[in-house]
Design a protein around this nucleic acid. Structure first.
Lengths: 333, 333
DNA sequence: GTGAAAGCGCTAACAA
DNA sequence: TTGTTAGCGCTTTCAC
């Protein structure tokens, strides 16, 4: 490849100043006489000079780029979070390097190392499950990291979330208030920190509080078909209320129930843990925990900008409010 | 910020070779004696040396990074495309800089310039509407660009798509075969090239072929509510079949129809132009054009790798096959 | 097969 | 306020 067409050197020569002065102008340094600045600016415009961000990055050790680690962009949960992150990143002029960790083409540790090699100024990580190797890599590096809609085991890393235990408990109690006694929970990855240490804990506490016995935990319920197929089991085990962590499986359950003649919410109540577009498309409309996904992303990104600017963080663990949106898959108002 | 911990220089010193040799080893250059290579590799491992990609980029003028321009990641159409792009990019070891152009925080030209300043090796662009400033920027730069699920006005840029005219015509004819005579079309952005030069053209040709008069074009039908609200108008204008370019509005129409007592497909047939998860969640299940979104993305990325490697392209405009998935919102099988 | 040395384009002391 | 001068960490001729 050829050399860059117009460099800072060309501008300096044409404007009869030093490279340093051009650099100052480009970076908005105020220590430049207005007259000089204008002259440089004119040359920059005339030559269509554009700074080479890679060279800037090498010299300044700042790339104005962050890494975004995400499991699956086609999942609305993550894409909503990403949108919040993206908007704030744009405001602060950061670019985002997107790293998907869904397919196992690359080990998570290598993905993170790749980001670090690209000298990203910070990393935002989202995933249902924070892998061990990721957690270790994050604790080792001095590059700032923030978790969005994600929790680590010991709470060492800055993060933004809602209070899952509180939200889930409210959901269980809503179904209980309708007189349901055989309430179940269906989770995606039962080893994920949020499920293992929060949602399932809330479930057990709920069961104990009302002396409801062992309960029913369905694991690995990930997609529409999983939900659809789960229905038969729910029917057999006489489940009359279920909390589902993902939206597509919830839709599957509702549709299966409708087809097989089970009335929702009379015979079976359903609450889903994430209010996406799916919720309003299904009939009956699903009662759902409305998480402020966009805000979680936005706040996470804002936290990261502070960390990258060596500003102090008020809260390391931010907890945002949620709302339980009562729709037609539950009966108690 | 401090200097990098371990540099190529440290490795060279410890291995008692020159930086050039270390560089060769790192980049898999074969002109290194096996013995030397092993020694260098051992030192790299011992010191945990990791190359600085920014410095590599500056020296080699290759960043192994591409720019991905996307309007809205929460739109399944684009996130599916992105997934295909991401997978292939990962295989070829390219990182992706994600640039959203949905919010108008930044002009599209500036977004592209920013990517160019970061010295990306290539760009993939997706959008319903290729803006004039984007098109001009792409024609001006020597950085390779590929359009995914997107078309430019004059067809100068490499792109991957399906045959929209053929697909839409098939959809119209399917409804016509059911005896529908007042068939309409609802589009998102009617100025988008795909709509203006393909979908709407197909619609007009269909009307003419069957002497169906002027027809009905509904514009700016973007989201669930738009579709839901459109129903009243469809009813008033006695529409008995409609082709909708987006999935959420389709769901809105179906749900509104069900609520108001209009039978789908008996009284109103609906076909949507993109088969996403929404299609199978709505009842009745929507008949839809199944676009190979993942493949479009994958092929676009593969084309880009060729362009970046100065390999020739067999086809500049790739057209992938689609399938019309007949579900329950149409009656003809 | 290996090394010396000149950059890549820019920033950031330090002087002036 | 401006210029000089080292780098930043790496690749890449060109010799040997």
């Amino acid at each position: 490849m050829q050399k860059q067409k117009v460099t800072i050197y060309d501008v300096a020569r044409e404007a009869k100043v030093s490279m340093a002065t051009v650099s100052r102008v480009v970076n908005g340094n105020t220590n430049v006489r207005q007259e000089t600045r204008d002259r440089v600016l004119a040359v920059i415009k005339r030559l269509h000079y554009q700074p080479n961000a890679v060279a800037q990055g090498l010299a300044s050790k700042k790339t104005t780029t962050i890494g975004l680690i995400v499991p699956d962009l086609t999942n609305l949960y993550f894409s909503e979070l990403s949108k919040g992150i993206d908007d704030i990143a744009m405001i602060y002029k950061y670019n985002i390097i997107l790293s998907s960790i869904e397919n196992r083409l690359m080990r998570e540790g290598d993905v993170i190392q790749g980001l670090l090699n690209k000298q990203v100024d910070g990393i935002i990580y989202m995933s249902n499950r924070l892998s061990k190797e990721a957690e270790e890599a994050f604790l080792r590096t001095k590059t700032p990291v923030v978790l969005a809609g994600t929790l680590d085991n010991d709470g060492h890393l800055p993060s933004v979330n809602i209070d899952y235990i509180k939200a889930d408990t409210e959901a269980f109690e809503l179904m209980y208030a309708s007189g349901k006694k055989n309430i179940a929970i269906a989770v995606g990855d039962s080893e994920a920190v949020i499920n293992k240490q929060h949602r399932l804990v809330a479930y057990r506490r709920f069961l104990e509080a009302h002396h409801l016995g062992e309960g029913h935990v369905y694991r690995n319920i990930q997609n529409y078909a999983d939900g659809y197929n789960l229905y038969a089991q729910l029917k057999q085990e006489k489940i009359d209320g279920i909390f589902v962590t993902k939206d597509l499986p919830s839709a599957g359950i509702v549709n299966a129930a409708s087809e097989k003649g089970t009335k929702v919410p009379e015979d079976l109540e359903i609450i889903t843990a994430t209010a996406t577009d799916i919720v309003k498309v299904v009939r009956p409309k699903l009662t759902a925990v409305k998480q402020p996904l966009y805000d979680i992303g936005a706040v996470a990104m804002r936290m990261l900008t502070k960390l990258m600017g060596d500003e102090p963080l008020e809260d390391k663990k931010v907890v945002l409010p949620y709302a339980l949106e009562k729709n037609d898959s539950t009966s108690t108002r």
